[in-house]
């Protein structure tokens, strides 16, 4: 059983080291950096596509990274069930690569948003849905393009197939427009693929994992869930 987590590093990734530290410090799990030019993922239990500004957000956020050599291999391994977690820019890359449906547009507010939000866990059948329970999680967001967009039929599929994991909400779980920071369709903050092994979300669990940072530790709930999916 491989206990390492692979973290893909693109030019412009900037949350890769934070993730290495959290996995090491909180979970004693070691990581392997995977270069974007590589064509092999190697022997890892799961892969994280970290946040940042890959390729300077040129063309569209995540667009150029989605065509990097490693992405073909990632798509193949994800198709075979490898757990993949995309955070912020990682989520944008996964949608551009069509590993997750929809896309992320400029925030409706026209501003880069840096704040903490509450996330309501939606109903679904993935391991994430089962293990996260019904509590609202508190995590930071930091993005200019987090406005999740999908057409009507795509949204219906997400609902019908239980692929929505997180919606922006109030502390008590109200998912109204008032608590939607960026204009995301149906307040969506995180979704899985149909199989439930690929998850993308805009909030940063790795920035809500250390008590000393005073940003809460709700990120651990999600990361623990990811590691369970990786059988770690």
């Amino acid at each position: 059983m491989n206990k390492k987590i692979g973290i893909i590093r693109f030019p412009g990734s900037n949350c890769d080291r934070d993730m290495i530290d959290v996995l090491h410090d909180i979970y004693q799990v070691s990581s392997a950096i995977i270069d974007y030019r590589s064509t092999s993922i190697g022997s890892v239990a799961g892969v994280i596509v970290p946040g940042g500004f890959s390729y300077g957000d040129y063309l569209r956020a995540g667009a150029l990274a989605s065509h990097a050599p490693i992405m073909l291999e990632l798509a193949q391994q994800a198709g075979k069930g490898l757990p993949v977690l995309g955070i912020c820019n990682g989520f944008q890359i996964l949608t551009e690569a069509r590993l997750l449906p929809g896309t992320l547009l400029k925030n409706k507010t026209r501003q880069f948003i840096c704040e903490t939000v509450y996330l309501k866990v939606e109903k679904g059948s993935s391991l994430y849905h089962k293990s996260l329970g019904q509590a609202c999680l508190n995590m930071p967001i930091a993005h200019g393009e987090g406005n999740y967009a999908i057409d009507d039929s795509g949204l219906k599929k997400l609902h019908d197939q239980g692929q929505i994991l997180f919606k922006y909400a109030s502390k008590s779980g109200v998912t109204s427009e008032e608590f939607n920071p960026n204009g995301s369709r149906a307040n969506i903050a995180g979704i899985t693929n149909k199989q439930g092994n690929v998850l993308g979300l805009m909030p940063h669990p790795e920035r809500a994992s250390y008590e000393r940072l005073n940003t809460g530790v709700d990120g651990r709930v999600l990361l623990s869930s990811f590691l369970s999916l990786c059988a770690i």
């Binding site: 063309l59 569209r60 667009a63 065509h67 949608t95 551009e96 449906p101 929809g102 896309t103 547009l105 967009a149 999908i150 057409d151």
Partner: peptide
């Protein structure tokens, strides 16, 4: 394939 994202 590259310049436009057909979703939006």
């Amino acid at each position: 394939t590259y310049l436009a994202n057909s979703v939006a």
